[in-house]
Simulated scan of single mutants.
Amino acid sequence: MLIPDLPLRTGRLVLRAFTRDDLAVVRDYRGRAEVTRFLYHEPYDDAAARAAIDRLVRRTALREPGDVLNLAVTLADTGGFVGDVLLNWTSGEHRQGEIGYVAHPDHTGRGYMTEAARQMLRLGFDGLGLHRIVGRLDARNAPSERLLRRLGMRREAHLRENEFVKGEWADELVYALLAREWQAAA
């Protein structure tokens, strides 16, 4: 079980629980086609943003396998919204997890999401005691692939046309990191 002491802070960022006050910003960045291009959902309209906020505000702890921790990423100096990160506890028996992230397009290219995702790896390995954490992505999403590599994750699989997403077959890449690799890099 992991109930993090929120907010989490890095050199430049604050990772905090979502609140209902985040509705407008979630609607804004998740409502953009360029943001959702490689995600499973279409751009959010008002109803989808409200439904997302209802989920996000409850995702503040990992009490059992299947739980998801989802945190808003903001700039420490201004409070500007950078995006969100998640850690999904996918298996208790096998001590597995998955990280994910979605960047606000106004804040890409500065390493913010790498910094935030690194915190999620830390929570998974050091806080929850996971053995292995994966990151899955659409194979066309080159910026996301570069982020996973910066985190020290290695490509384990390239699955050809394994998912039918938004009317087309898509390839999926799977990256992973083991706890011992995380510790060796620390």
Rank of each mutant, 00 (worst) to 15 (best):
L151K: 01
L137H: 09
H107M: 12
M113W: 00
T108P: 00
L148V: 04
R146S: 13
A170C: 13
A170V: 15
G152M: 02
A139F: 04
H107R: 05
D126K: 07
Y112D: 05
H131R: 15
G109W: 04
Y112C: 11
L123H: 04
F164G: 00
A117M: 13
L137Y: 05
R149P: 00
R122P: 00
A117S: 14
V174S: 01
R118V: 09
E163M: 10
R140L: 08
H131A: 15
H107T: 06
V165R: 06
Q119L: 05
L151Q: 00
H158D: 06
H158G: 07
L151N: 02
D138G: 02
L148S: 01
L121A: 03
H158V: 13
A142W: 07
E172K: 03
A117V: 04
S144P: 06
G129C: 10
Q119C: 07
Y175P: 03
E168R: 15
G127W: 10
A170N: 10
E163K: 12
N141F: 14
H158T: 07
V134N: 00
R140M: 05
R149C: 02
R122T: 15
A157I: 08
P143R: 06
E168I: 06
G167T: 08
F164I: 09
R149T: 14
L128I: 10
G167K: 07
A116Q: 03
R146Y: 07
D126F: 12
F125I: 06
E145K: 13
A139P: 01
E161K: 15
R110G: 04
Y112P: 01
L121C: 03
A157G: 13
V174H: 01
M113D: 00
Q119V: 11
R150I: 10
I133V: 15
A116S: 11
R136T: 12
R160P: 02
L137P: 02
V174I: 10
D171A: 11
A139T: 09
G124F: 08
A157K: 10
G111V: 09
L123T: 10
L173Q: 07
A142Y: 09
R132S: 03
H104N: 14
Y175I: 09
M113I: 12
H104Y: 05
R118Q: 14
G152P: 01
V165H: 05
E115I: 09
R136P: 02
R149N: 02
H131Q: 13
N141L: 12
W169E: 01
E168L: 04
L123K: 07
R160N: 02
T114G: 08
G135L: 03
K166E: 08
R150H: 11
G127M: 13
S144T: 11
S144Q: 12
E163R: 13
L148K: 01
A142T: 13
G152V: 03
R118E: 13
R122Y: 11
A103T: 13
S144A: 15
M113A: 06
A103E: 03
A117F: 06
G124V: 08
Q119I: 07
R140C: 00
R132E: 03
P143V: 12
